[in-house]
């Protein structure tokens, strides 16, 4: 088990290195360099920057040097913990991202837990009561859940809440806590607001996981070990939970590898519609204003979250499935 985790951990830096290259390429993708476009933007709005400042910026990012030099300059600064400064906000990027990253993770993880908590019973009951009313109902629910883009759910709920209840359901905090320091009250306030984005974000995933679980379970329910457990005299529900559900969860857990990163990046759209203080809307804004180092840092954060998500699912799977544990060590 330990060997397996260490092996995975050793792969991490390599993966992150490749990801940093991709992020850098994305930063470089827009035509022209960002200082030039920034100066042009300033000029357009009537202000200007003095020559020396511009040269200092060019020197700092190595803009006149070849691409790989720029990359290593950028990477070495990041490794020292310096993400750079957002030209758009005129603030250090780490300051801009920090809190938003935390909220992204909180939203992502709570969505993840919600998804499992709901998909597990739905999938189990659908499979064990195949072709019952319950099964049909949730089959329809699952199809609609998968077919509805998350931002549509968000828009419709927002509209309903506004037109029927007269409330606006945006943000993750009440106004009085929005910019306050962390306190017990703020955590409670977050709890009061996080559930709606969580449900919206989790709907699609819940539908998918419930469908996968149902299919997996239907396979498992005909296996001889079920017969054996029945022949032992085990009560039906207990044996379903102990054996097939337990076994059907494994392929589900291996799907976490893609699901958790998907939640993190998928929250981007919902966060934009609901105006949540996560990194998603910030990425969108930085991309539109061509604040490329901010955008690159955020993309890199998404990659980081994805890597952590994959690692988490690997470890969880190894813990759940002894076969994998043996194989890998």
């Amino acid at each position: 088990m330990l060997v397996y985790i260490v092996k995975r951990l050793l792969l991490l830096p390599l993966l992150l290195l490749v990801f940093s290259v991709i992020a850098f390429i994305l930063i470089q993708a827009p035509p022209g360099d960002f200082v030039t476009s920034y100066v042009a933007e300033l000029a357009a709005s009537g202000s200007s920057m003095d020559r020396l400042q511009i040269d200092a910026l060019r020197e700092l990012y190595g803009l006149d040097r070849p691409g790989y030099v720029q990359y290593f300059k950028w990477l070495s600064r990041i490794l020292q913990g310096d993400l750079g400064i957002s030209l758009d906000f005129q603030k250090p990027i780490s300051e801009l991202i920090g809190q938003r990253l935390l909220l992204t993770v909180i939203l992502g993880l709570s969505t993840f837990l919600f998804t499992f908590a709901v998909a597990l019973p739905i999938g189990t009951i659908s499979a064990t009561r195949q072709y019952s009313f319950f099964d049909y109902f949730f089959t329809v629910f699952n199809y609609v859940g998968v077919a509805t883009p998350t931002f549509m759910t968000a828009l419709i709920l927002m509209w309903l809440a506004f037109s029927k209840l007269g409330i606006t359901i945006t943000g993750l905090f009440s106004p009085e806590y929005a910019d306050a320091a962390w306190s017990f009250g703020r955590v409670v306030d977050l709890g009061k607001h996080v559930w709606l984005p969580m449900v919206i974000l989790g709907l699609d995933g819940t539908a998918r996981l419930a469908r996968i679980l149902r299919a997996n379970l239907l396979d498992e329910l005909n296996k001889p070990y079920m017969e054996m457990a029945r022949a032992k005299g085990m009560p039906e529900w207990r044996l379903i939970i102990k054996y097939p559900v337990r076994l059907a969860i494994n392929p589900l857990v291996s799907s976490l590898g893609w699901y958790l990163p998907l939640i993190f990046s998928g929250s981007l759209i919902v966060a934009t519609v609901l105006n949540l203080p996560t990194i998603g809307p910030l990425l969108l804004r930085s991309l539109i204003s061509q604040d490329m180092f901010l955008a690159g840092s955020i993309v890199l954060s998404y990659f980081g979250l994805a890597v952590i998500g994959t690692l988490l699912s690997d470890v969880l799977l190894a813990w759940l499935d002894p076969r994998i544990r043996m194989e890998e060590s």
Partner: peptide
């Protein structure tokens, strides 16, 4: 009444 199954491999759970 106890049962000895046909395929012991399949009749035992691989994760328990």
């Amino acid at each position: 009444i106890a049962l000895i199954p046909q395929e012991p491999m399949a009749a035992l759970s691989p994760v328990h």
